[in-house]
Design a protein around this nucleic acid. Structure first.
Lengths: 151, 151
DNA sequence: CTACAATAGTTTCATTTGTAACCATTTGCA
DNA sequence: TGCAAATGGTTACAAATGAAACTATTGTAG
């Protein structure tokens, strides 16, 4: 047994994960950043506003739904509102809350970026065969579930 | 077909990957940050210095081996040297290059952190069954290989 | 030999991000 | 009621990160 047992970074799973994850996320992010001057957090906010487009979400709800912290959300919203992509009103009955909705312009951008993101996801998954794709989906679901359970 | 087809973030693979990856990396990083005041880049530098402990690496070599950029490496090295964890000499015959090595103190820290990191990796993988672990290893290798090929 | 390009590494400056403190409002309950 | 704790959100400050410019040295084409 060697005295020092160094880690082989390229076989270390957390490291591998971070490379794969950063690469694919960065590929997608670059495209909508260049085309719409949109940051990652901003895009995620838009995505949840699009999906839960019922009565308008609060910033807190957006934070929960994106698993990001409220300061990041606050900053993203400031830009989105300033750029006319999100409409912000005050909740009647609770003046602390904001009521958030995509604007028409926000929807227009969403309807370009969402398919584009899906396209990137597809291209990414196509580097795997069908079995591997299924396995990856299973694994990620399981990890996310057990992770949520732990916290 | 709905007019707007919003993304379901929690089923979007790049998003899932980023959550899983950040969670596990952050868990490990927190521990060595708290115990040794060591940043992620610093630890990665130490890991490659430990592994390729032949004639001493240059900063450029460290950058290549960690897949990080030379500015980040330069900063990490400045701290590591200041804290007595890495020894820096000048290459004889090429005064531009530095020759980097872990100090005794650096090795001491390495020999605590490396097993600790492996322990976290093990705990992470144990959330999967044996088949899933094999599948994940296969998938990551494949993605990293095709990724490298693409660039 | 000289001059220009390339390489190793650092510094600078702008942007991003994270943490803590903060303000306003609402809720819980003595 | 009335006041402390909790909640929604923003601001302020510090640390981390990235891009570009810079210094020093070495390689190389004429």
């Amino acid at each position: 047994m060697p005295r020092h047992a160094p880690i082989e970074l390229e076989k270390f799973v957390p490291y591998q994960l971070s490379i794969v994850s950063n690469t694919v996320s960065e590929d997608i992010a670059r495209e909508y950043r260049e085309r719409f001057d949109l940051g990652t957090t901003e895009w995620r906010v838009m995505a949840v506003l699009a999906r839960y487009d019922g009565d308008g979400l609060s910033a807190r709800a957006v934070a929960r739904l994106t698993a990001m912290d409220k300061v990041a959300i606050s900053r993203a919203l400031a830009r989105l509102v300033a750029n006319g992509r999100v409409l912000r009103r005050t909740h009647r009955g609770d003046k602390r809350r904001s009521v958030l909705r995509l604007s028409a312009e926000g929807w227009r951008i969403h309807d370009v970026v969402a398919p584009l993101a899906r396209q990137h996801e597809r291209a990414f998954l196509e580097r795997l065969d069908a079995d591997e794709q299924r396995a990856l989906a299973r694994i990620l679901d399981k990890l996310l579930a057990t992770d949520a359970a732990v916290r």
